[in-house]
Design a binder for these strands. Sequence first.
DNA 1: CGGCCCATTGAGCCAGTTCAAAAAGGGTGG
DNA 2: CCACCCTTTTTGAACTGGCTCAATGGGCCG
Lengths: 249, 249
Amino acid sequence: MDALLNRLSLQTDLQESDFADLKRLPYQLLAFQAGEEVVSAGQLVSRAFVVETGWGVRTRTLSDGRRQIVNFMVPGDCFDLQAVLAARSDHAVSSLTPMRLRAVPAMSFVGAVRQNAALAAAFWWIGLQEESILREHIVRLGKRGARERLAHLLLELRRRQLIGGLDEATARQAPLTREVLADALGLSVVHVSRVVTQFVKSGLLIVRHRLLQIDNVDALAAIAQFNTAYLHQDGVQPLPQVEALQESG
Amino acid sequence: MDALLNRLSLQTDLQESDFADLKRLPYQLLAFQAGEEVVSAGQLVSRAFVVETGWGVRTRTLSDGRRQIVNFMVPGDCFDLQAVLAARSDHAVSSLTPMRLRAVPAMSFVGAVRQNAALAAAFWWIGLQEESILREHIVRLGKRGARERLAHLLLELRRRQLIGGLDEATARQAPLTREVLADALGLSVVHVSRVVTQFVKSGLLIVRHRLLQIDNVDALAAIAQFNTAYLHQDGVQPLPQVEALQESG
DNA sequence: CGGCCCATTGAGCCAGTTCAAAAAGGGTGG
DNA sequence: CCACCCTTTTTGAACTGGCTCAATGGGCCG
């Protein structure tokens, strides 16, 4: 879980002992090939997951087959922390690339979070980031045109990969077919293809096989009006409240 | 905070003592007129809010003035629970109608949640619902046409008002101008107006002043392919995990 | 009664869609 | 190493849902 640990050490002020608590959690490593379904819609989930390597997506499929990608998952992301409540997943999660996941039993996760206030704060923070990413996706779909949407998404994914500790060169890459992009951006495959081509011709993007690679971050940021504030990368403040609580609780 | 209490009693299995803990929290009542800004973007928030009466919206405004409504808030909804972490709000919250809010200091809220596992579970559940509502908004914007979007949103708002304990007649009403709908649905004011008019002519909606009233739930549900699963109304299960934890922690 | 804000309606336009077909990979088996 | 097949991508052409611009109409308040 290097990516998650890296993320937590950058964004929270966990101590060695907190990391130790985290590492002590029981887990199971799961390996998936590209295109497998990790969690099905309607399934009763009872584990929390951490992405170790590879990319995944959370999708919602309407009864007539239309499919919306609700969120992407890159190394260091967690999902189904909600599992804690034995909720039924209302979305499916599947892998885009070969993917390795760490699955933690819900009960153990809750236990750790309840016994360690710093961990609770850290995962609360992660939840906050996730929610913020969802909100930004809403803005992307509701208020932006096709070029802006694509540029904005690619920049977000780069940033999120950086947060997970990947190096700049890797973080600029995204293994996304046009269809995946279309399902995420609320556009047709054909139109995504046109926009990608246009970006390539303008030197913003390099396409190799089905790998998109950002070639000009600044130009994309200008197109997308990209502002990273919503990612809350700066991490938690020294947290006066929570520290006060640790003393009293 | 009747609406929230009602919601919690329907969806969670809190005991009298849990409700007592909740009622014991210090709070401040705030009253706003229609169109006031409750929380500004970038502001450091340090309180959690509960909507007592009235409607609010969370909005994100792009630098060029485009405005996206990310979520609606109806009685019984909570927001800025994240405040706990002293995060900067990346969105503004404002009132659509006169609104009464209960503001709870972040520290007190965290204290209550940390000392009472049942409350923690209840608010975790509320967070899960909120996230699910955001995801459904993504699907609405990404994969649905204008008629579907409007029908779907109105049905969601009805359901959410019912969850807050409002009666059926009230829950069918929504005090939304065309502009608000447009900003929420990613459409233009003009087109929203056309769709509303069309719905009125088909007997799906009644419009009085600036109040939309649902006149035919089933027909709207058919248009929207509305499925309530994502609202997780059924509430938490008896929660084996959390109960086990209460014993051990 | 007049002013203001909101909603409606019409006309023309455009971003993005759909349909269809061709091209380009890339993996597999011979 | 080549031939073949399957999937993905690209491209063209026609279409359309929703947009913009602009003007008119209504309801409410002072």
